[in-house]
Design a binder for these strands. Sequence first.
DNA 1: TGGATTTGACCGAT
DNA 2: ATCGGTCAAATCCA
Length: 165
Amino acid sequence: MLAENLVGQIMGSFCKTLSILKSNNSNEDSQIPVVDVFPCRKDDRTSPEDSTGSCKKSSSKERRGYNKKRYFNRKILAKSIKETSTLVDDGHVWRKYGQKQILDAPYPRHYYKCTNKFDQGCEAIKQVQRIQANPPQFRTIYQGHHTCKTYPTVSQMLLDSSNRL
DNA sequence: TGGATTTGACCGAT
DNA sequence: ATCGGTCAAATCCA
C-alpha cells in the first residue's frame, strides 16, 4: 500500500511530464529534434575479422573490443526528464551499459537501455543520475520510446487509468 | 553456465 | 584537448 502510493505519486508526475512534453513538444531544456543521424547500422559493428582475428583476451586491459569500430547508431532522440526521490520501476526492464562521472555533478551518471533492445530492437534509453544525497533525489532522463512488446506493469496501468479520471 | 553488471577504452562533438 | 556517451571484455551472481 505504501509502495503503491509512492509509485502512484511518481507515476502521476511522470504522466504529467509526458503530457507537458506532448503539449509543448519543445520541453524545458531540450530543443532537440528527433533526428536520425545514422539511421542504419545497429549491430553491424561486431565484425570479428578486425586485424588479426586472434586478439581475444590477448592482453589484460588493452583495447577492449574496439578496433575500427565506430558509432553508427548515435541518435539524437526526444528527451523527457523526470526527477524522483526514489529509483522506481517504470514498468520496463533496463540493462545497464555504462556509468560515467560527470564533471559538474558530484555523482556519476548511469546509462541504461531497454533489455529488449536485442530481441525487439527497442530503442528506449534512460540515464539515471543522483542529484542529491539527502533526501535522496535522482534525475532520470528517458530518450526514445519503447517499441518492444513489454507492456507496463499492472500497477502502472492502474495508475495510468486512475490518472485519466 | 548464461545473463546482467562493472569498468576502462574508444569515439564523436565541441 | 576535453567531455559525454557507448562499447565490450571481464567479472559477478543466480
